[in-house]
Design a protein around this nucleic acid. Structure first.
Length: 487
RNA sequence: GGCGUCAUGGCCGAGUGGCUAGGCAGGGCUCUGCAAAAGCUCGUACAGCGGUUCGAAUCCGCUUGACGCCUCCA
């Protein structure tokens, strides 16, 4: 069970052997969504990477506390003092909490379709206002923040005197200052690099809470510091999120945690890379995105047909989580075929007979699967090994290779564990009333066609086959009879 | 402008100082009444130019291009 797991730490830019803070336990925090609109596929990719990582730690036998927050306050829009939730609420004339509820529900629904495991704790920013206020007080006491006009800002320059602001993003605060764009002169900040811990609420701002500094709302970066500390402790194992959060969000988290607790909060920083479409980052703000729901229905100009959630998942797992992945119709179409082949092959595995001896080396194949995952969660290499398994299954079922019953047992369970438990794929062939009816109908036609073929009535048999093809039902003639699949 | 990442065969996408990634597409073969499906099999790529080395696609430098962050973003 005990594996040497190496992961790429963004803090050091190196692959490091994973050593938990507490033996046998893993504390993992991942920055969740700001629930002011539907999650798009790019958002999903990051969460999916960490879902896979969570699954792998669980598989290795760790006790994992996985915290993924919901940001339901405090995330400012650009160039304004309004946060995203409040803005949306104002525009749609809804309570902020209606917005939060709506998009949180959407988020959960979508993740469920993608077969995500729920996190251990899913805390919200609004549920931790008190803790955030306390953290601000601590930072003020430590002399690393200042109050101006009812807002409190983190004093980055002061912090940088003793600590290194930029330790994660490899930036130099001095450089940052030199390259700062012209100020509009409106800011209360001493320095443009300073960031809000608490913002005074303007009259039109709907989400507001009392604080020692007046009525306002917490800054975005603070919630993650407070909630990760509360549930995982002052130092925990893994903090994850999208690459785009590295700066400033995660940098600010480190600074805040240092300012509160005087220690580096996170041992391993993991950053998932972006999903692009047409070569450009998917982002809500630019409109270059695709919604998961559109993948499931096929209703998006960038795709030619609908895809199962598991196909999208397989598509993403075929790329490494730290690589940029470009979404395109051709790429997903190709992934779908590979996915189907994998699933059909695993289905076939149940029929493989064991033998007196083994002609294949199952244990070294299994070790290779683990090696791939232990090398910074290399799912594309794992999948390559699974396809070697597919080849084996075909050869085994043709009797060209053999396995003893114990080897077959190990082989079979390893294929399934990695495919379903770790990659989180599902076999999409679900049965319902309609598919049962269709099944009966098509099987009837298959029987009629067989009769026609036995009579050498090619005209009729070909007609049945071709007409079904036109309807998107493909007949597959095999040695054991005819089956069909839907296109 | 600053910082950083990446450039792999028709497409997607791993990895490595010398030994086949894998998937999709394509060719060949098997199967089939003919097909399709399925299976087996083939393919020798690593942006350009220099350098280090016995040997580099893999290390170093430069050039070109793309992307990301620097302002909200997973």
């Amino acid at each position: 069970m005990k594996q040497d797991l190496y992961l790429y730490n963004s803090l050091t830019n190196n692959k490091e052997r994973f050593e938990p803070v507490k033996e046998g336990y893993v504390g993992m925090y991942v920055c969740g969504p700001t629930v002011y609109s539907n999650v798009h596929l790019g958002n999903v990719r990051t969460f999916m990477s960490f879902d896979m990582i969570y699954r792998y730690f669980l598989h290795l036998g760790y006790k994992v506390r996985y915290v993924r927050n919901i940001t339901d306050a405090g995330h400012l829009t650009d160039d304004s003092d309004e946060d995203k939730i409040s803005k949306k609420a104002r525009l749609e004339q809804l309570e902020p909490m209606e917005i939060v509820q709506k998009y949180t529900t959407d988020f959960h629904l979508i993740l469920q379709k993608f077969n995500f495991l729920p996190p251990s704790i899913e805390p919200t920013a609004t549920g931790h206002i008190l803790e955030q206020i306390q953290a601000i007080e601590t930072i003020l006491e430590n002399g690393l923040a200042y109050e101006v006009n009812g807002s409190v800002y983190f004093d980055v320059l002061k912090y940088n005197e003793k600590e290194h602001y930029g330790i994660l993003s490899k930036r130099n605060i001095e450089d940052a200052i030199e390259n700062t764009r012209a100020l509009d002169g409106q800011s209360d900040k001493k320095n443009p690099q300073d960031f809000a811990l608490w913002k005074k609420a303007e009259p039109e701002h709907i989400q507001r809470w009392n604080s020692p500094w007046g009525v306002g709302f917490p800054g975005w970066h603070l919630e993650c510091t407070v909630m990760s500390t509360k549930y995982l402790g002052e130092q925990f194992d893994i903090h994850g999120g999208g690459m785009d959060l590295k700066f400033p969000h995660h940098e600010c988290e480190i600074a805040q945690a240092q300012a509160c607790n005087h220690q580096n909060p996170v041992k391993y920083w993991l950053h998932g890379n972006m999903l692009t479409m047409n070569g450009k980052k998917m982002a809500k703000s630019t409109g270059n995105n695709i919604l998961p729901e559109e993948i499931f229905t096929g209703e998006n100009p960038n795709i030619s047909k609908a895809f199962e959630p598991s196909v999208a998942r397989f598509f993403m797992m075929q790329a490494h989580y730290r690589s940029i992945l470009d979404f395109s119709n051709d790429a997903v179409l190709a992934a779908e075929k590979g996915y189907n082949r994998l699933m059909e092959s695993i289905g076939l595995m149940a029929e493989v007979q064991s033998s007196g001896n083994s002609s294949l080396d199952v244990s070294s194949w299994k070790a290779k699967c683990y090696m791939a995952m232990n090398d910074d969660f290399n799912t594309p290499v794992l999948i390559a090994h699974l396809f070697e398994g597919v080849k084996w299954i075909n050869l085994l079922s043709e009797g060209k290779e053999t396995l003893t019953s114990s080897d077959l047992e190990v082989f079979s369970s390893t294929m399934k564990v990695f495919t379903f438990d770790i990659l989180g794929l599902e076999n999409s062939k679900k049965s319902d009333k309609n598919t049962d009816r269709l099944d009966g109908l098509v099987n009837l036609l298959i029987e009629m066609r067989k009769t026609a073929r036995d009579d050498r009535n090619w005209e009729l048999s070909d007609k049945i086959r071709d007409e079904l093809t036109k309807l998107g039902i493909q007949l597959k003639d095999g040695k054991e009879g005819t089956t069909y699949s839907l296109n």
